[in-house]
Design a protein around this nucleic acid. Sequence first.
DNA 1: CTCATGGCTACAATCGTTTGTAGAGCGGCC
DNA 2: GGCCGCTCTACAAACGATTGTAGCCATGAG
Lengths: 313, 313
Amino acid sequence: MVHPQTTERVLAVAEELGYTPNPLAKGLRTNKSMTIGMVISDIENPVFGPIIAGVEATVGREGYSTLIAEAIAHDPAALTPVIDALVDRRVDGMVLAMATRSGENAARLKRLGVPVVLVNRAVDDVEVASIVGDDQFGIGLSVQHLAGLGHELIGHLAGPMETSTALGRLQGYHKHMEELGLDHPDSAVESAEWYQIEPGYKAAGVLLDRRPDLTALVAANDLIALGAYRAIRERGLEVGADISVTGYNDMMLLDMIQPSLTSIRVPYREMGSEAAELLLQMMTHPDPESEPHGTKRLRPSLSARDSTQPPPA
Amino acid sequence: MVHPQTTERVLAVAEELGYTPNPLAKGLRTNKSMTIGMVISDIENPVFGPIIAGVEATVGREGYSTLIAEAIAHDPAALTPVIDALVDRRVDGMVLAMATRSGENAARLKRLGVPVVLVNRAVDDVEVASIVGDDQFGIGLSVQHLAGLGHELIGHLAGPMETSTALGRLQGYHKHMEELGLDHPDSAVESAEWYQIEPGYKAAGVLLDRRPDLTALVAANDLIALGAYRAIRERGLEVGADISVTGYNDMMLLDMIQPSLTSIRVPYREMGSEAAELLLQMMTHPDPESEPHGTKRLRPSLSARDSTQPPPA
DNA sequence: CTCATGGCTACAATCGTTTGTAGAGCGGCC
DNA sequence: GGCCGCTCTACAAACGATTGTAGCCATGAG
């Protein structure tokens, strides 16, 4: 109801005076800080870079800024104070990229009425919106790829079972082995204590000693797979020629390693932007009834390399 | 001047009522947002993870939160709007982790009275506080290591000259070669267009064609060094045995590559926390006269691996 | 001439803090 | 008893926006 010309004049003067609205005053009055909080459990893990970038770019387009907080520890209790700090700052929403499967923090946020989206890792006991990779599908790609090469005795090096990704990948292994009519006994599965080379090496050693007949190993993560390289070599075998190995995440430099590691590429940046999109929707349409709480799974793809070859004759 | 017991009672009631101070109101009144801005030029680069973690942890201890913004582009002009967005949000200070050597953005922030610290990359035309790695010293470690192995014909694969790190490493090469009494003509130096494998491969090809007598290459970065691997192999030579190679940054998985790459480890997390420390000091003691504007250089260390061996007889 | 209407100006309340001032209650000191 | 200092309560202004209300001045319709 105001003349366009007047609007323009006001804007021009504002510009001339160098006026910029004070977001603190605005936030105080409107009770919206135009800020979202993002909690990262392990910021040094390179997968989080693209996730952060995706979130930041997407919410930024709607005028939101991103407050980053790191929670170094692996246990959920240590997360609570850092989440609280963000809530005290009156963030309008929250993206959680956590290590654990426990949903207590997400549940608390929901109780406080703070919109929350989980990214990368889901929780299994609480209904909360999350964007994750389709781990079952991804492991399926590996299993099918190996089966296509002629492997029948395929083992699984699982991740730490307190993470949702490890669980999904384990389930994917069983499911797709079953579908292909291949054996998948518990004896063909060994879990690594953490997503690192050393635990992967240990788990692979245990698995190879128990089941020396395996011709392929599907690892829950690239570093576990690289740990398996060492265990395989220690037994005088050759990765690829004697035992095929697949990783998961398709991290940088895998193609430079000998032999280059076949892996599953996860669209992390897209994961971040989808999570942000969902959060924006929850923040702008606070529809308490139909609030999204499902888990959206993004489909990864296979990067086939030299670590997977037909089984020895 | 208030009784300790009263304080305690007030605090107890506050706790009971679930009172948390509203930082927006506080910021409005005090004109301090207790927030710092952090601009990252390329968040997918894994070196920034530790830097962010270091900054966040350090300022967090003093009650500050960290607002993250990414500026994807490499040119300084694209940075301006994202810096402005942070300034408009009334951040109390700013940490810039940029790609370019241009100081215009830092200069503008100083003019606006926003305390600013540069991290990882310095600028050469403006007096601004910065925390960077000691590139000359780091390259010195590589050069001395190679000279100690018996190399005399050592070339340098430089980085893109628009970055301060590339410049410092180039200078370090010349300086330390000079000190050791070794030849370091311009013909032994070739610059890669970017800190990536492909440009490194190209530059190494040019350098090896021009100076086939070189027995060692000091690269300005790990990826450039890995590009050199390919160029060396293409010429029927073996990395390590025929031509030694060193990288810079000591990124993950370098020890898994064949041959494992000798590199320079930079204390990135410490870099982040030192930058934060400096920024805190500037924000709390706004001493316009003696404002720090020097460059602090953190000393890296050498990780010797198989890519460096004595020159062929 | 009156009155409704569109487009504007002016003013006040509110958000939750910080900061400052005024005054009340109460003990001890001269 | 009067005065001072200590501790506390009470109240108001300010920060910079949003939001709502009231009034002003044209213009044009009745």
